[in-house]
Design a protein around this nucleic acid. Structure first.
Lengths: 250, 250
DNA sequence: CGGGGTGTTGAACATATTCAACAACTGTGG
DNA sequence: CCACAGTTGTTGAATATGTTCAACACCCCG
């Protein structure tokens, strides 16, 4: 029903200014303590800042396409994005949503393995891959942090396989909502009226369902009193415990 | 129908002996050039060998269970294994099969995120995680290699999401067979009578299908002349081009 | 020779999809 | 400012794909 057009870049809380910190755009970055950057102190951050290219993407624009040479790596600083793969006939699988602080282009080494598209207006830090890799030699902490991130993404990917391979529509939607809450908490965004930045269609392509099934399943969760739909893209989780049990398959 | 009991540890070609190499079990290891080890020269390999614990697992035994503290990391040197996650009611998703040379326990940092069970008799190298991480400080090449491996696994995981979320049963089976062929090629195992080390049930739990659907779909592929079933666990791919097109969804 | 495990096949069934119509909202242009 | 087109979301009915339940075949092994 209602659409959330002109939805803007997410505003995150400002990090506390560090005493004696060298002045760099990074020091004031809203995701200073969320992204890979959190592994670095302010002086090390300057090295990263030196090779950083700021990028703005309007809603619907792609940072890169599947199959393209993976020459750049990105860090999302504001807004939301989606990663997806396409089949020749147009079937689509969203392999992940990207939240502020997340890295893009990690899974690839030569070619991007998915398309990255902004689902709201977005701002990113762009890095030339070779430059970033040179920096790794100097800052092993960075590389270790990246390995940790990859590990986490891998663990999440396995959870998503369980979801896609074995969960019912109801269980998928419940799992999805719980993931959104967890993300919102990490970003210190509102969790009571939970903002859903993506369309029903995107949710479907992420959960291996159709738009219609997503819509119907949300309606049924509302009818059973587990959630309340304030508006299309804004819900309240009335019964978090039940939602959790549904998600896990109890 | 026929069962492949007493199926033994895969035999791989012996690596060529290196001149002047220090004598270590690793130098003669069948997967010397496949595993992480390939990043190291023979002298560096001794460091790895020093902290290596050999392990044998009979068919059906688990190296570790989901949720267990992830104190060890493994490398499979012979045989085949499966990784799976369970739901409370017994639904199961196999998140991956493990082939000789593959690492186990990577996706986890504190707790194992899946159970690792041998589907044939298997032999492994076991490493205490803390010791391995100490070694990383000394051999950054190793850490970089591990990051590469994680990236590849992540890319594969995303392909599996597309498969589980959007592909038909026929497309899933075709994709699975192609993956098996690629694996066999890498390991220099037979690809014409292609050996399938896992049961129909395991294939189903990997592809998000039931045993029955796997069976039926294989039968239909046979009827359409794309594959030939020599025996239950041994097939020939009669028309690789068609199989590829089916897998990609053309 | 008999039993357990594995795989195949058939018929009934269920869940999610497809196709279609409609409703609500946004933004645009007259 | 209103009308209208386009987008997004909801709902219903028919359909399809894969599941469930059940029976049976095969094979190795004891």
């Amino acid at each position: 029903m209602s659409t959330e057009h002109s939805q803007n870049v997410v505003r995150l809380p400002e990090p506390a200014k560090r005493a004696g910190a060298a002045e760099s755009p990074c020091a004031a970055c809203p995701i200073r303590d969320l992204a890979v950057c959190s592994a670095l102190d302010d002086s090390e951050l300057n090295h990263l800042n030196a090779i950083r290219l700021p990028v703005q993407l309007p809603h619907g624009a792609a940072a890169f396409d599947e199959g393209e040479p993976a020459d750049y790596v990105y860090n999302l600083t504001g807004g939301f994005m989606k990663l997806y793969k396409l089949m020749p006939d147009g079937r689509r699988q969203i392999t992940g949503f990207v939240f502020p602080g997340d890295f893009l282009g990690l899974a690839s080494d030569t070619e991007y393995v998915h398309t990255a598209e902004a689902i709201t207006d977005a701002s990113l830090c762009k890095f030339k891959r070779v430059q970033l890799e040179r920096l790794f030699r100097e800052l092993p902490k960075l590389e270790r942090r990246l390995l940790d991130i990859s590990r986490n993404e891998l663990a999440e990917a396995h959870n998503q396989m369980l979801l896609l391979g074995r969960k019912s529509a109801k269980e998928r939607i419940a799992s999805f909502l719980i993931m959104l809450v967890a993300r919102a908490e990490r970003l210190e965004l509102s969790t009571d009226p939970l903002e859903i930045p993506m369309s029903r269609n995107d949710i479907g392509d992420y959960l291996g369902l159709t738009t219609e099934t997503v819509s119907r399943t949300l309606t049924r969760l509302k009818q059973s009193g587990v959630i309340a739909l304030n508006s299309d893209r804004r819900i309240s989780i009335a019964d978090p415990a039940s939602l959790g049990e549904i998600a896990e398959g109890y």
